[in-house]
Structures are given as C-alpha cells and as structure tokens.
C-alpha cells in the first residue's frame, strides 16, 4: 500500500462550506418542525358544549371527561399523567341577587375545609376573564389515594378557582394540579379559559 501523505490544514472547498451550512440549517429546521409537532400533539383539543348550562369550550384531547356528578357539571382529568391527575372542572351554584363572588368564595372555603385535607386558601383576588370581572382564589390541600387498601403518600395539590356570577348562578371554574408542576401545567388552563364561552 502506498503511504498516503495528505496535507493537513488545507483550506475548505466551497462544497464543504456549503455542505456544512446546509447541514446546520437542516438540523435547525428539523428541530423546529419537531417542536412544532410537539406543540400540535400536546395542544390537540376536543370540543364540548352543554346547552343546558350554557357553556361551550375546547379541552385537551385524551383527558377523561365526566359530566355525571352532583358536584360539578363538567370535569376533565389528565389520566395519562402519573401522580395527581391534573383536573379542570366547572361547577354551578344557585345564588341570590344579593350574593357576591366573594360570598361564593367564602362558602367554598368553608365547605372545602371540611372535606379536603389541610385545605388552605393562599390568596383571594380580583381579575377578569375576557371582559368579565371574576374572583380568583388560590388554595392548596393534600390529596390522598381513595382506596384504603393501597399505600400512597399525600400529594400537595395547588388549585385555582375562578368565580363569577352569571345569569343568576355562580360559575366556578377550578384548576388543580400537583403543586410541583402547577406552573408547568397552568398554560393548559390558560388555553382552556381562552376557548371557554359561557
């Protein structure tokens, strides 16, 4: 075999330069497409409408929908998530003409403190949902596995209620997620609220 003696450090050819540039561009473009694909998959929604209550909304596809309960009119849970299932629910309560959102928030707090473990209201504030003024309640509690025969630690859950009085009823929109991932999950709730009509 003939001893090759290539000359190291020779300048790059045009082809090599363009090739490198194309490769970098391709990689970035592909990564962009991948991230877009991710956004599409995680942001897929299903439509829901309840004419009886008067709500129309989109919710994340693949979340478990339940509308047969006396506690709420609409509830979705992310069942594919390990740990506490991130939940969005809408419930309605009758109110009088004198009832304010703050009254509803106080009633909620009183009833929850009896049923939710270590329930604490973090803060109550005012805000708007679109053009509608709302009461916003942040709270936390410990969620426990319901089966007594299984062994699970409590999960610290952070929740956020948006309360408003519309058409003679209090509408309570609740978002609950594991406290550690509340901020990560919150954009889902924001998207949900953006699509919500009532």
């Amino acid at each position: 075999m003939i001893l090759n003696n290539p000359s190291p450090g020779r300048p790059l050819t045009q082809t090599q330069r363009w090739s490198t540039l194309f490769t970098i561009i391709l990689a970035l473009v592909m990564l962009g497409i991948g991230l877009n694909m991710r956004a599409q998959i995680t942001g897929a929604v299903a439509a829901y409408e309840d004419t009886r209550i008067g709500i129309r909304l989109n919710y994340p596809e693949g979340w478990l929908l339940d509308t047969n309960s006396s506690d709420y009119v609409f509830r979705i849970r992310d069942m594919t998530r390990a740990g506490f299932k991130t939940t969005i629910q809408i419930s309605v309560r009758p109110v009088s003409s004198a009832t304010t959102e703050r009254n509803v928030a106080d009633q909620l707090a009183r009833s929850r403190v009896l049923t939710l473990q270590d329930y604490r209201v973090l803060n109550i504030g005012m805000g708007t949902l679109g053009e509608i003024p709302v009461e916003i309640v942040r709270y936390t509690y410990n969620d426990q596995s319901t089966s007594p025969f299984l062994q699970s630690f409590s999960t610290v859950v952070e929740g956020l209620d948006i309360l408003t009085i519309q058409r003679g009823q209090a509408i309570i929109i609740s978002f609950r997620a594991e406290a550690d991932s509340f901020d990560d999950e919150y954009p889902i709730f924001e998207t949900f609220l953006n699509d919500l009509e009532f």
Partner: peptide, 9 residues
Amino acid sequence: PLLMPFTLL
C-alpha cells in the same frame, strides 16, 4: 453539498 445534510437526515 446536499449529501452531508442528507446523511444527517
């Protein structure tokens, strides 16, 4: 010059 990006792909 497209071979290298193609091989990356």
